[in-house]
Simulated scan of single mutants.
Amino acid sequence: MDQQNNRLKAFTVLMRASQSVQEASKSKHVKQGINPTEFAVLELLFHKGDQPIQAIGKKILIASSSITYVVDKLEEKQYVTRKACPTDRRVTYASITDEGKKLMEQIFPIHIEKIEEIFNELTDEEILILIDLLKKVGYNAKKL
């Protein structure tokens, strides 16, 4: 195989692997009535605390235009509330509720188990190599 074909194959394998990992990791929280984006927002708030709604998109890698919709849905489910910033009227924070924390305490350990299962074919050394290689590809793609 020539260099160009190897790069095309690497791209295809990366995209398919990414899709498979996403499918495998979302199965448990979807059963709880939340989609992967809602889970990502809850996970961020659960682990990092209140976040400015405007900043959430960058942190969980989704379009900022979608964040308001996602926060609305989580608010309807009573997993998140909005809080005004006391020092800047332009900023609104998303905050996880006790109900949201209870949900995450229930499903996050299951999520961790699933991630462990997904990567159990790799040694610790291979995982570190994979991280480095994916970062290298990601940073290069970001520069383009």
Rank of each mutant, 00 (worst) to 15 (best):
V41G: 01
N140Q: 14
F108L: 11
I115A: 09
E38I: 04
L61S: 15
Q32M: 12
R89A: 09
D88S: 09
D88Q: 09
A17W: 05
T87Q: 10
Y93N: 02
R16S: 11
D88R: 08
S95C: 09
N120C: 10
L45S: 00
V13Y: 13
E126D: 10
D50L: 13
C85M: 07
F46H: 08
S25Y: 01
I34N: 01
L130V: 05
S66D: 05
V137K: 06
E126S: 10
Q32K: 15
K31E: 11
E76A: 09
P36L: 02
E43V: 13
V30E: 09
R89T: 14
S25V: 05
H47M: 11
S27W: 04
E116D: 11
A94S: 05
E23C: 08
E75L: 05
P52S: 03
K136C: 13
G57H: 02
K135G: 12
E125H: 11
K77E: 05
D132G: 08
H29A: 03
S64A: 12
Q22R: 07
H29P: 01
K77P: 01
D88N: 14
Q54M: 14
V137P: 07
V30L: 12
M104I: 03
I53Y: 02
K31W: 05
G33V: 07
E117G: 13
K28P: 08
K73R: 14
T92Q: 05
H111W: 09
Q22C: 15
Q22D: 14
L44I: 06
A84M: 06
R16M: 09
L45R: 00
E126N: 06
G100H: 00
R82A: 03
K136D: 15
S64L: 07
S66F: 12
L14C: 14
V30K: 13
F39W: 02
I110N: 04
L14P: 06
E105D: 15
N140A: 11
A40W: 00
H29Y: 12
P109H: 03
I67V: 15
I53V: 12
E99K: 14
A94D: 00
